[in-house]
């Protein structure tokens, strides 16, 4: 695995031991997940125990330790979306893609994730695909939404 980007990221933060969270966030953007090798490398470069890095990597829900799909489908599970039917939208997505929340389709195309709230509550239920917002989604619209990315 090419870890050159890890070196660059750690260097960008000036090898700051307090910046582990920010470093991991940038790595996830660069590699689409947190590869084990990258976590090892961060520990080595910052001279911090591996446990200290992986405790951050596993504590925060925004990190994925497994490779994610080409398209990330994020379902907002905030209260406003919840009362407007987000759980039904999530089940419909799971049914449509035949995977559960947190999983990736066998062809590597889609990953379903949930998030506590994206702060676009007025438009609930809300689904994001690759960071693009799709508001007021009802269960009947799920397959149309996905077909744009298929």
């Amino acid at each position: 695995m090419d870890l050159a980007k890890v070196d660059q990221i750690v260097e960008k933060y000036g090898f700051d031991k307090n910046a582990v969270l920010a470093i991991l966030q940038d790595i996830q953007v660069a590699y689409n997940y947190l590869p084990r090798e990258a976590i090892n490398k961060v520990s080595e470069l910052l001279s911090l125990p591996l446990g200290q890095i992986s405790s951050q990597a596993t504590f925060f829900s925004s990190f994925s330790l497994t490779p994610r799909g080409e398209h990330i489908v994020t379902v907002c599970m905030g209260t406003a979306c919840h009362v407007r039917g987000a759980p039904r939208v999530l089940s419909e997505l799971e049914r449509e893609l035949k995977i559960d929340d947190g999983e990736t389709t066998a062809d590597g195309k889609f990953t379903i994730e949930t998030v506590n709230c994206v702060g676009a509550c007025a438009l609930g239920p809300l689904v994001m695909v690759n960071g693009n917002y799709h508001g007021n989604i009802d269960t009947a619209e799920v397959s149309t939404l996905l077909s744009a990315y298929r």
Partner: peptide, 24 residues
């Protein structure tokens, strides 16, 4: 500082732990 998606980090001491580079 950017958070990592942990609700508890809104609690003041957890937030400070996170700024200090520790688990929140």
């Amino acid at each position: 500082n950017r958070g990592g998606g942990a609700f508890v980090c809104g609690e003041s001491t957890a937030l400070m732990m996170s700024i200090e580079g520790k688990v929140g």
